[in-house]
């Protein structure tokens, strides 16, 4: 459950919470720490993405990695993009892309939605299984016409890894695969309750 905090957190507390994979947000006028999955459930406000981008990212994440929507791929990516580049835990930070990373995501999501509109006169998030998979396959192979984002196979690779991070990179994700997490230092809670 979200843990209410009585006072506005300091920058260090926010950084620390972010470092633990938590989001620090205002809900109902109270500062709270949420794990990405909790933020997803609570419909927490997003710092970076527009509602359209958010819908596209969540849908793409879920189609690439089933379960990642519920695991919180959207608030996870949104929060990490809002963090300072040196605090960012997204894989993109060591894939040779200059920070800030938001334009990479924004243009990629926009290009995917534009491709869905061009082919099917529908936002990507509302596509049925078959046309969505067809678009993703074309994106993965760099075969989408008029693609106006980062190289589409690379965008696919990055988004797929973000979704895998949220789905499989947590204690809960390891457990779902039957892999003992065996931490020296645990990432507190699913992603973490501040203790």
């Amino acid at each position: 459950m979200p843990k209410p905090e009585s006072a506005k957190p300091t920058r260090r507390e926010i950084l620390k919470a972010g470092g633990l994979g938590l989001l620090t947000v205002t809900l109902g006028g109270q500062w709270v720490h949420l794990s990405p999955a909790e933020a997803q459930a609570a419909g927490a406000p997003l710092a970076v993405f527009t509602p359209e981008e958010a819908a596209t990212l969540a849908a793409l994440g879920e189609r690439l990695v089933p379960g990642s929507w519920k695991a919180g791929v959207l608030p996870f990516v949104d929060y990490q993009l809002a963090a300072a580049p040196e605090d960012c835990m997204l894989m993109i930070q060591y894939l040779g892309v200059d920070p800030p990373f938001t334009p990479f995501y924004r243009t990629g999501l926009g290009a995917l939605d534009a491709a869905a509109q061009a082919r099917h006169q529908s936002p990507f998030a509302k596509l049925e299984d078959a046309p969505a998979e067809e678009l993703i396959a074309a994106m993965a192979e760099g075969k989408l016409e008029n693609w106006a984002g980062p190289p589409s196979p690379f965008f696919y690779f990055v988004l797929r890894n973000d979704a895998c991070d949220v789905m499989y990179g947590t204690e809960k994700g390891f457990a779902a695969l039957g892999v003992h997490y065996a931490a020296h230092i645990r990432p507190p809670s699913e992603w973490g309750e501040i203790s």
Binding site: G19, M89, A183, P187
Partner: peptide, 15 residues
């Protein structure tokens, strides 16, 4: 602060 996590691990790199 060397948290056992492939996500945390990224802070040690690049930048």
């Amino acid at each position: 602060e060397l948290v056992s996590s492939m996500l945390w691990a990224r802070r040690l790199k690049g930048g």
